[in-house]
Simulated assay, not measured.
Amino acid sequence: MTSIVEYMTSQHRFCDNSFAAAEIAVSEKNWSEAEKQWGVFRRDLEIHLINEEETLFPAFEQISGNAAGPPAVMRMEHLQMRGMVESMTEALQAKAADGYLNLSETLMILMQQHNMKEEQMLYPMTQQMLPDTAAVISSMNDL
């Protein structure tokens, strides 16, 4: 059986891979490949964020009884990431490689720090606290 840590970390890696592929394509000014990979990244990221915001975080908050804990911080960071993704989408549409790559560096750092907090703290805590992690993972698969 897959754990929450494994399941959610694998989603991070899918996002990381398409993010890196889009960055390479932009640096090479291969705009069609950049748009393709960026579309994959945006879709995978949004699915991941929705999985967390609509399933994982509420389950954590219900069990912990704390709505102002780690998930609240993660939600704020999700808002920051979504804003940066929109700015990067605009840069990509304008074929502004320098603007895109500058934003890309910032978003990569934000995502790395965010993912580390989730993978090392939030996911393991959630795994330990939830009585039925298989049901939680199954409901995320339905998205």
Rank of each mutant, 00 (worst) to 15 (best):
N115F: 09
T126E: 01
K117V: 07
T9S: 09
G65Q: 02
N51F: 14
M129A: 14
I47Y: 01
R43K: 11
E33Q: 10
A34I: 04
A94Q: 14
A67G: 07
K29F: 09
M121R: 08
E28W: 02
F57N: 06
N30H: 09
V136I: 13
F14L: 12
A91W: 02
T9G: 00
M116L: 11
N17Q: 13
L103D: 02
A22N: 02
L101M: 04
N141V: 04
A96M: 06
E52K: 09
M108Q: 14
N115T: 09
E35F: 06
M111V: 12
L101D: 06
M1V: 10
F57D: 01
A91L: 02
E105K: 12
E77M: 03
D16N: 12
S32R: 13
I63W: 06
A135L: 06
L110M: 11
Q11P: 09
W31V: 03
L49G: 07
Q127M: 01
A72R: 02
I47Q: 03
Q93H: 12
A20F: 11
S3L: 01
S139E: 14
M8S: 14
A22P: 04
D132A: 06
H12D: 14
Q93C: 06
Q11A: 11
F14G: 05
E119K: 05
G65Y: 00
T106Y: 11
E52C: 05
E77Q: 12
L45W: 14
E6C: 07
Q127L: 07
I24D: 15
M84K: 13
R75G: 01
I137E: 12
E46H: 13
N51H: 15
A91E: 05
R42D: 13
L56H: 06
N30K: 14
E52Y: 05
L49P: 03
P58F: 06
I63A: 13
M125W: 08
K29S: 15
D16W: 04
A134E: 08
N17H: 11
V85W: 02
R13L: 09
E6Q: 15
Q128V: 03
M84S: 08
A68F: 09
F41V: 11
S138W: 00
N66S: 01
W38S: 04
N102H: 11
L143W: 11
